[in-house]
């Protein structure tokens, strides 16, 4: 019996979320009096997961795993679960993890609780707190099956460094061509740009910015902060920005450390999708904009004046604190 945690990597390097789910797995392992084993695909620094409490890493090597494939990955993880006699599997909330977790749930006949924000409050029955109703509420979910899957919300649990090194084993699974039946034809990622899902900071623009030609200052602000750029729904509907930047209840969820909303009114559907962010800053020229009620910090002012000033100030700040 152990806890198996799926630690994601990109080009061989672990993503930040891998350290968070590893930390979470260590906590669950301690609660259950067992150890945490990680599983990764083509990762090169397995030992480093020891720092987050993982005892052993099963690494799967092979070119066929270079591009994520939900079915092949889920099947591999299911085999690792059997080998380790794992009872509980921990995954992140990345798009890939959310794609494979239900497939894994079906294979293991496991109950799956996604969007979990805290360590389990009880281990028998295993009970976790998860967000529901698009962040307008929480559910305390008991998983009643023998095998269990917990999906941890990004940035909710945090990273615990405890020092240590993990042992690494190569793991090979029984995979067939048929497991790659959903064939990837082309992956189109903007190189060097941080994604909304992985970003610590997200800078978001709304209809108050008047038109796509005014996004230069938003991108500049994102650049000084190392942030991802996002937008409200009408902005992507009008084609000012790509659909992939639309955040909110019907767009991408945001759970960053810092969310800066510029020229966004704070409609209920927008707030539902971004309210999991830790600190929210609003820049809006209307003091009555509903977003101020949901924000931590705010500037009532014209974005066209405030944002360039903020960019300059942050450049100064970065230079001093570099």
């Amino acid at each position: 019996m152990s806890i198996l945690v799926y630690t994601e990597s990109e080009n061989g390097k672990y993503k930040k979320s891998a350290f968070e789910v590893a930390s979470y797995a260590k906590t669950v392992a301690d609660q259950m009096g067992t150890t945490a084993t990680a599983i990764s695909f083509n990762a090169s620094e397995g030992e480093s997961l020891g720092n987050y409490g993982v005892s052993k890493v099963l690494n799967i090597a092979g070119d066929q795993f270079n591009t994520f494939n939900a079915e092949a990955y889920a099947k591999t993880i299911a085999q690792a679960v059997e080998k380790e006699g794992a009872t509980t599997v921990i995954v992140s909330s990345s798009a890939n993890a959310k794609y494979l977790a239900p497939l894994l749930a079906a294979k293991l006949k496991a109950g799956y609780a996604p969007n979990v924000v805290e360590a389990p409050s009880c281990t028998a029955p295993l009970t976790v707190k998860r967000t529901a109703f698009s962040n307008k509420g929480f559910a305390h979910t008991e998983i009643t099956t023998d095998k269990k899957i917990i999906g941890v919300s990004n940035n909710a649990y945090g990273i615990n460094e405890i020092g240590g090194s993990a042992s690494v084993e190569e793991f090979s699974a029984q995979i067939e061509d048929g497991d790659f039946a959903v064939k990837s034809l082309e992956v189109d990622k903007v190189a060097g740009k941080v994604s909304i899902a992985d970003a610590d900071i997200v800078v978001s623009g709304g209809r108050g910015l008047k038109g796509p030609e005014n996004w230069g200052m938003i991108e500049e602000l994102a650049e000084v902060l190392g942030a991802a750029t996002a937008c409200s729904k009408p902005v992507s509907d009008m084609g000012w920005r790509p659909h992939g930047e639309h955040v909110g209840q019907t767009g991408k969820p945001v759970a960053s450390n810092l969310y800066i909303a510029i020229g966004i009114s704070g409609a209920i559907q927008h707030l539902a999708g971004v309210s999991a962010s830790k600190t929210k800053v609003v820049i809006n020229n209307d003091a009555e904009a509903p977003f101020f009620k949901a924000a931590d910090y705010g500037i009532v002012g014209d974005a066209f004046e405030v944002v360039p000033q903020l960019v300059e100030k942050l450049k100064e700040f970065k230079a001093q604190n570099a």
Partner: peptide, 12 residues
């Protein structure tokens, strides 16, 4: 839609 981009796929 994938984190940070798009992917084109094909399936029977």
């Amino acid at each position: 839609e994938i984190d940070g981009g798009k992917e084109k796929v094909e399936a029977a």
